[in-house]
């Protein structure tokens, strides 16, 4: 009898990469629903186009690198990147904008650095930042939420995908812009004078962030990542905004709730900084990583030049992750301070 020789362990828990990625995609659903509800069907076309282009780019590169397409495409990682890019860019973007974003995400940020798991920078954020810098006009025009203006219908949305012009329906300054440009108004007046504000933050945006928060908590429950990154980021952001809240005066940077529920905060906290490849490795490292992202997000939002800051903050910290790792190797069993 010739016996098969395998190396221990001979058991394995089946939560393969594809399941992990599928769970991330599922977790995006509540946030997506909110986005679609408030910003219309353009979000769907964004999503379809970005995912399609991402998978296309992934397939091309895999083919060029001589990898087994079926094996490597089945890990769903390109879909996740595509989806994250899609929810970051304004709805009703033209196809080529989305394509460029997907190209930079997948080809440059992911594969030029070695592929899955080896990307030092978050692929979706690289794509987003390239677009933001190259096409600021397109990238800073967010449609007004559906409560304030009519969102385009399906056909119109589809058409905008193919038009060369950026969608020029009703776009409005986002709450983050308003907060930054606020000169001399108490926050209560700022909220009252601008219909873009809801109860705590931007109309619609509150719900979008709550949606991503819900998905994020579900992933936390599923143990897809540890609490350290998100808690670090949200805590730092909360503390800073509380410090500089200034009782809602005209010099205020906005309340903690405003910052938590604005822009890409929750998306960043649960879907972006939790990307393990470009983040820090140990729990302490992730806590630091998250906290520093939180600090940077606040600084850029309040004193910087860009409306939202998550992408820049994340990319900067991606750069620091190896250093964080270097100084935060956990103490192994048997070292005094590793005792529980």
């Amino acid at each position: 009898m010739s016996l098969m020789r395998t190396s221990s362990p001979h058991l394995s828990a089946a939560n393969p990469v594809q399941h992990v990625m599928q769970q991330v995609l599922l977790a995006l659903i509540p946030g997506l629903i909110a986005l679609i509800h408030f910003f219309g069907p353009g979000v769907i076309f964004n999503l379809l186009a970005a995912c399609g282009f991402a998978v296309l780019c992934e397939a091309l590169v895999l083919r060029l690198r001589g990898y087994d397409l079926r094996f490597f495409l089945s890990d769903y990682s390109a879909l996740v990147t595509g989806a994250l890019l899609a929810v970051s860019i304004p709805p009703y973007s033209p196809w080529w904008l989305i394509f460029i974003g997907a190209f930079f995400s997948i080809v440059v940020a992911k594969h030029l650095f070695g592929g899955l798991g080896q990307n030092p920078f978050n692929p979706a954020m690289v794509g987003y930042v390239v677009l933001l810098i190259s096409f600021p006009v397109y990238m800073t025009h967010w449609t007004a939420p559906s409560d304030l203006a009519n969102t385009p219908g399906l056909l119109q949305s589809f058409a905008s995908l193919w038009s060369n012009e950026y969608y020029d329906g009703t776009t409005m300054a986002t709450p983050l812009d308003l907060m930054k440009q606020n000169e001399g108004q108490m926050l209560t007046f700022l909220y009252a004078n601008n219909p873009q504000f809801g109860s705590y933050a931007g109309l619609g945006w509150e719900w979008v962030n709550l949606g991503f928060l819900a998905g994020g908590l579900w992933m936390l429950h599923k143990k897809l990542f540890t609490w350290h990154g998100p808690v670090g980021m949200l805590a730092a952001l909360g503390i800073l905004s509380a410090l500089f809240y200034d009782d809602g005066s005209s010099a205020s940077g906005g309340s903690p709730l405003f910052h938590w529920l604005s822009g890409a905060t929750m998306l960043g906290a649960f879907f972006i900084i939790t990307d393990p490849a470009s983040g820090a490795t140990s729990n302490l490292g992730r806590l630091l990583f998250g906290a520093m992202v939180g600090v940077l997000v606040y600084c850029i939002r309040v004193w910087g030049n860009y409306p939202d800051a998550v992408a820049f903050a994340v990319l900067l910290l991606n750069f620091c992750a190896p250093f964080i790792d270097y100084y935060t190797i956990p103490k192994p069993y048997g070292t005094e301070d590793s005792q529980s």
Partner: peptide
């Protein structure tokens, strides 16, 4: 009963291994 080893995919650095390691090491590193 015992699955045959599956072909290895790239490490996605998910950190599941580090969370589970009883010696508190970082297996991915």
């Amino acid at each position: 009963e015992l699955p045959l080893p599956k072909p290895a995919q790239p490490c996605i650095r998910c950190g599941f291994c580090a969370e589970a390691c009883p010696a508190s090491l970082l297996p991915q590193q």
